[in-house]
């Protein structure tokens, strides 16, 4: 079985691109199963179910949605195998830019919206820099020059990635993405993350509500960038 992580900021077009890619995977004779992870609520499962593929939702609630996704990797895989899937597609919530929920053997796809401007690739961090495939959406809304400048910025931060120009409305680029998924390797054995996620490192991570500095312990960073360990 193959595993694909589809990450990217909310509204970037993950579900739209994913749905077109599923149709192309079906044309290629591959059976897909989808896990949608979100924080509190999602309606993506209803959209995807219309394609007749098995869909499962995981809500992370107060856990970092990417940590939650990583923690549940094994469960997702065993569920997808029990559904007889050839490809497990996991759409992430895409809210935490510190985390990149990409296991090394999975195909890491970062969906990014070109209308967010040419400086966005510099802001996204490991989500973009450790991806195998970068899907640039909404190119229909900008000029060719803007698409090219955007692409240049993506290559600057992730020189080895494959860039797919896709359109979530028309399905442009989805066949290319489906081909890349078909040609990706199978997952097997133990998987490692590509990028270490920040774990619970401070009192805020574990539920402290008071804002005053004196209540906080752990590895903490000040506005001026100074980082210190506060505590025993």
């Amino acid at each position: 079985m193959k595993m694909v992580i589809i990450a990217g900021t909310p509204g970037s077009g993950k579900t739209s691109v994913l749905m077109h890619a599923i149709k192309n995977l079906q044309d290629l004779g591959l059976r897909a199963a989808v896990v949608k992870v979100d924080c509190l609520w999602t309606e993506d499962d209803a959209r995807i179910k219309r394609l007749g593929v098995p869909v499962r939702v995981g809500l992370a609630r107060d856990m970092c949605p990417d940590h939650y996704s990583i923690y549940n990797t094994e469960e997702m895989i065993s569920w997808a195998s029990s559904e007889g899937a050839d490809v497990l597609l996991n759409e992430t919530a895409g809210l935490c830019l510190r985390c990149a929920p990409y296991p090394d053997r999975a195909l890491a796809v970062c969906v990014i919206d070109v209308t967010s401007g040419p400086n966005t690739p510099l802001k996204i961090g490991p989500l973009l820099t450790t991806a195998d495939v970068v899907v640039a959406t909404k190119g229909d809304l900008v000029s060719q020059a803007e698409r090219e400048v955007f692409r240049e910025r993506v290559v600057e931060v992730n020189p080895g990635c494959r860039i797919v120009e896709a359109n979530g409305l028309t399905g442009k680029g989805s066949r290319e993405l489906a081909d890349i998924i078909r040609d990706s390797r199978d997952i097997e054995g133990e998987m490692l993350l590509r990028h270490n996620p920040p774990l619970a490192v401070c009192t805020l991570c574990t539920g402290e509500l008071r804002t005053a500095k004196k209540h906080h312990r752990g590895v903490l960073r000040h506005l001026d960038g100074f980082t210190e360990y506060v505590g025993e």
Partner: peptide, 12 residues
């Protein structure tokens, strides 16, 4: 080279 239907730039 493509001149699309868009009438405005979005890059800030």
């Amino acid at each position: 080279a493509q001149l699309s239907q868009n009438m405005h730039f979005l890059a800030d």
